[in-house]
Design a protein around this nucleic acid. Structure first.
Length: 449
DNA sequence: CCCCCCCC
C-alpha cells in the first residue's frame, strides 16, 4: 500500500479528476455518514450507507457503500475525519437523483483503498457557495442550496410509523427565526448532537438542503444527500459568529430580529386601536409604540396550562383537571401570561403576553436573569404587534400582543458607526475562533460514532 | 446495487 507521502503527492482536487479515472487520489473530509439502511426491490436486496465527502476547495462528492463494503470500512469514513481515497471509480451521476456534485460520484470497488490522515481538510476556503438565510429566502420553493446560519433551538424528535422528523430553529443578522426540518437519521443523529450543543449557539453550515415553503412560510428541509457542518471556519461563518458574539456580549437573547409579520403590520397610534379607528389591513395585524409603565403580575407571570387547549388547569393531588376539555387528568405545562400596563401617546392600556413574553424575558431560565430583564423593561419603549378583529365593535381595554421588541433592538444589524467595534470583534473572533472551531469539531468524533 | 424528499 502507498505511503501517506505518496498519496499526498498524487492527490488532486475533486474537480480535477479526469473522466472515468480509477487512478486519482483524493483527500477528503467526511461531512456525513448515513445510517446503515436495508433495501429490497425486484432485482436486489441488501444494505447501503451514504457517505458525503468534501475536499479542501469545498467540492463535495457522494459515495454509497454496499453490503460487504460497509463492514470492510466500518472503522473508516467517520464524520469529521479526513482520509485519502485511492483506486475509487468515478461514475457519472444519475440525473434522476439529486447529488452533491453535478457530474461525478465515487463508487467503491474491491480494490479501493482508504487511509486516514492527520493532514485534516480545512473548511476555511468554503465561503463562496454558502448562502445566508435572507438570500435563501429569495429562492423559489424546492431550491437546493448550502446555507450558513446560527442555531437557536432544537425541538424533540417527532416519530410516527413511517417517518421521523425534528425541527430546529436557526437565524442570522437579518432573518426572523426560521425552521429547519431534519428528516430520518438527520433527526436522530445530527439532531441529538445539536441538542447537546444548542446552548453554545453553534454556527451551522447546512449543505444541500432544500427550500420548503408551506402556507407561504419560508422553511428549510433536509434531503437524503444533505449534511451538517458544525462551526466551520470559512469567512462567512466567522462573520456570523462575530455577530453572535456581539449579541452575547450585550447579554441579549439571540432571537432579536422582528418577524415579517411585525415588519409588515400597519403602524397606528395606541389610541386608534383602543377606539377602533383602524383602516382594514390584509391580515388584521397592527403595531403600536408604547412604554411599559408597570408589570402587573411580575411575581407570578405564568400559569399551569393544558397542553391540548392551553386553558388554565386545576391541579389537585398531581392530577390536572381541565374544565375546558372536560378531562380530569390532562398533560399540562407552565406557560407565560404576563400582564403589562403600557402608555402610548396620552392613552393607557393593558397588554397581555403569552409566548411573546419570551421576547421580553429571554429564554434564559435563571431567575435572576429573568427578573433583571423584567425590571429593566420598565419605562422603556417597545413596538407591540397585535391582531385586531375589526368585526368586534366592543371597546378594547386589554390587548394580546403576539410580539414585542424594544425599540433600540429593532435593527440588530451592524450599523455604520459600529463598524469599528465590529472589526475589533472580528479580529478577536478570528484569533479565538480557529482554535475554538477545531475543538468544537473534535467533539462530534466521539459523540457521533 | 440505494433513493427523490415526507410534516405541520
Amino acid at each position: 500500500m502507498a505511503t501517506e507521502t505518496e498519496l499526498a503527492k498524487q492527490s488532486v482536487p475533486i474537480n480535477k479528476i479526469p473522466k472515468n479515472s480509477i487512478e486519482s487520489v483524493i483527500r477528503v473530509l467526511v461531512i456525513r455518514r448515513g445510517s446503515i439502511t436495508p433495501y429490497k426491490n425486484s432485482r436486489n436486496e441488501g444494505t447501503y450507507r451514504t457517505i458525503i465527502l468534501v475536499d479542501e476547495e469545498g467540492t463535495k462528492i457522494q459515495t454509497t457503500l454496499f453490503n460487504k463494503h460497509i463492514e470492510t470500512w466500518k472503522d473508516f469514513l467517520k464524520p469529521n475525519k479526513s482520509y485519502y481515497i485511492a483506486k475509487g471509480r468515478y461514475d457519472r451521476v444519475n440525473p434522476n437523483y439529486s447529488s452533491v456534485h453535478k457530474e461525478v460520484e465515487l463508487a467503491f470497488t474491491d480494490n479501493t483503498v482508504i487511509k486516514e490522515t492527520d493532514h485534516e481538510v480545512s473548511t476555511q476556503k468554503f465561503s463562496d457557495g454558502f448562502l445566508s438565510l435572507d438570500a435563501a429566502d429569495n429562492l423559489p420553493n424546492g431550491s437546493v442550496l448550502d446555507l450558513i446560519c446560527v442555531l437557536v433551538s432544537v425541538n424533540p424528535i417527532i416519530q410516527n410509523a413511517t417517518s421521523k422528523r425534528r425541527e430546529i430553529v436557526v437565524t442570522n443578522e437579518l432573518m426572523e427565526p426560521t425552521t429547519v426540518t431534519l428528516w430520518g437519521d438527520f433527526a436522530e443523529n445530527d439532531g441529538a448532537f445539536l441538542d447537546k450543543l444548542k446552548d453554545d449557539k453553534p454556527i451551522l453550515g447546512l449543505c444541500d438542503v432544500r427550500v420548503s415553503i408551506y402556507k407561504g412560510r419560508f422553511g428549510i428541509s433536509t434531503i437524503p444527500v444533505s449534511s451538517v457542518l458544525i462551526n466551520p471556519i470559512f469567512q462567512k461563518a466567522l462573520d456570523l459568529r462575530a455577530w453572535r458574539e456581539i449579541i452575547e456580549a450585550d447579554n441579549k437573547d439571540i432571537i432579536v430580529a422582528p418577524t415579517k409579520a411585525m415588519k409588515r403590520a400597519i403602524e397606528v397610534p395606541l389610541d386608534h386601536i383602543l377606539n377602533g379607528l383602524l383602516a382594514e389591513s390584509q391580515d388584521s395585524m397592527y403595531k403600536f409604540k408604547a412604554t411599559i409603565v408597570d408589570i402587573l403580575n411580575k411575581d407570578e407571570p405564568w400559569y399551569l396550562s393544558c397542553k391540548t387547549c392551553r386553558k388554565k388547569v386545576k391541579v389537585i393531588k398531581e392530577a390536572a383537571a381541565c374544565t375546558n376539555c372536560n378531562i380530569d387528568n390532562v398533560e399540562y405545562a407552565m406557560r407565560y401570561c404576563l400582564r403589562l400596563e403600557v402608555c402610548g401617546g396620552e392613552k393607557r392600556a393593558q397588554v397581555v403576553l403569552f409566548e411573546a413574553a419570551n421576547n421580553l424575558l429571554g429564554c434564559k431560565k435563571e431567575e435572576c436573569h429573568y427578573y433583571r430583564n423584567l425590571v429593566l423593561s420598565k419605562d422603556k419603549q417597545f413596538n407591540f404587534l397585535v391582531r385586531i378583529d375589526l368585526t368586534d365593535a366592543n371597546p378594547r381595554r386589554s390587548l394580546i400582543a403576539e410580539e414585542i421588541h424594544q425599540l433600540k433592538d429593532e435593527a440588530p444589524i451592524i450599523l455604520e458607526e459600529e463598524v469599528r467595534s465590529v472589526r475589533k470583534y472580528r479580529k478577536r473572533a478570528k484569533k479565538t475562533t480557529n482554535a475554538a472551531a477545531q475543538i468544537n469539531q473534535k467533539k462530534p468524533k466521539a459523540a457521533k460514532d
